[in-house]
Design a protein around this nucleic acid. Sequence first.
DNA 1: ATGGTTGCTTAGCAA
Length: 257
Amino acid sequence: MKIATWNVNSIRSRLERLLALLERHQPDVLCLQELKATDDVFPRDEITQAGYYSVVYGQKTYNGVAILSRSEPSDIRCGLEDGVDDPQARLVSAEIDGVRVLSAYIPNGSSVDSDKFAYKLQWLSRLRQLLDRAYDPEKPLAICGDFNVAIDDLDVAEPNKWADSVLCVPQVREALATVTQWGLVDTYRERHPEGGLYSWWDYRQLAFPKNNGLRIDHVFATAPLAQRCVAAEIDRDERKGQKPSDHAPVIVEFAQG
DNA sequence: ATGGTTGCTTAGCAA
């Protein structure tokens, strides 16, 4: 079972690349973030023709998440399900082939002294509470997406430049650690302990050609699923060429359970 | 120290 995640930065501007990616990698599941589109303009027909079901939790202009899958998804859930009045579409999940799959777009946080940063920390805390409340770390579960957190300095090309940023400050690393301590394995890191490979490069300042990147897109799995992990890669080439997303996809393969 | 880029929406925000 191949599970991939990709922040597309607008599903409509990335449709051609998305269809090519499905063809190239043939994932069983693809989690998407930053659709920047409502459900009614989501390109469902093209994706159906490519052989995938679509679970969509869209939003106008900002955010929006989805899960594409070859098998039919069931028990679809949207949001953090905690009764908080939160209009931001940042989490969707479904049961697929016996695995609970979550597609997550963690808030960026803007700057450390902003309200948005407080929301980011709160969001991660609410995510941990959702896991405690609704799921079991002893069962197969994958939470995939743009976490907007570089787990440690191995995930940062230029750690000194990024140390005080919302992607790296100790507060966000600790907030993410609180989530993973629920019982999640960083599947990519398990297979690439040396680090030095990234999933996001800013559009500005020639960040990609200079490889000034960070690994902020992750596939976390509970132990029973992580034990089955046989490969994990970042498709860095997807960041090349005309009109790329600023993120590259992460693709993780699991042996049959 | 600022500005650099992209996308949505159409001047300004978010990333």
